[in-house]
Amino acid sequence: MPILSVSGLSFSIGDHQILKNISFDVDEGEVIGLIGPNGSGKTTLFNVLSGFLKPISGTVHLRGKDITRAIPSKRAQMGIGRVFQNFGIFREMTLEENVLVALESLSKDQRGELGDLKEVVKGTLEMAGLTQFAKQKAGSLSGGQMRLLEMSRTFKTGKDLFLLDEPTAGVSPKMTHQISDLITGLKKSGKTALVIEHDLPFIGKICDKVIVLDVGEIVLHGKPSEVQKSKELQEIYFGADPTT
């Protein structure tokens, strides 16, 4: 059984249809890249999957359970973790509090599995390499550090499926490398992720499959090596086949 099953999903605002009949399955342990030009509906799809937007038709199943009408916090407690395009860090809280607030929001079972929360907080900050800033307000971190903290926090909170929206946007090449390592580590531990990215080599390096969206529809679906070679992708991204 796939961990995530999306079937016939459509979403529109007024007359403008943003997602059109989207269907795909994600198997456990897969990392799937979601690519497409700006305005193709990638982030909207994430918003529908995480419950912030309600689809006009179609269903979303998590481990066979219909979650189409579940509220965002319920979906999070069922195991969907999300990293947003803009930094999802609470700037007025310390780094410790930023991790703690996420841990405290888990269901009782999830918290029980994690054990001592103080140790998890410590482990999360170590994972992000930010232990020395534990008591500082998160607003004092650089953009890259915020991204690392957000990702480590999401990965450490016992989720099974991660929706990562442009995790390398606006970070240095060194940080991109660290983020790539984090996602690879996630994959090794058997977790599942959907990653929105414009960085095609990055997608090729970390993903098992790629889904290409254009004007709200899935236009390509396959292995990264196959998709990257396709003429359709070149046309979608560059407007024409660059070899011609």
Binding site: F52, I71, S73, F84, F90, M93, V101, E104, S105
Partner: peptide
């Protein structure tokens, strides 16, 4: 405590807080 942190998180980033599992309502 937990309630204060949840309320602050919702005040700063409502969507991010909810995606962590905080029930806004």
């Amino acid at each position: 405590g937990k309630f204060g942190r949840n309320l602050s998180a919702l005040a700063e980033h409502p969507w991010h807080a909810q995606s962590l599992g905080i029930n806004r309502k």
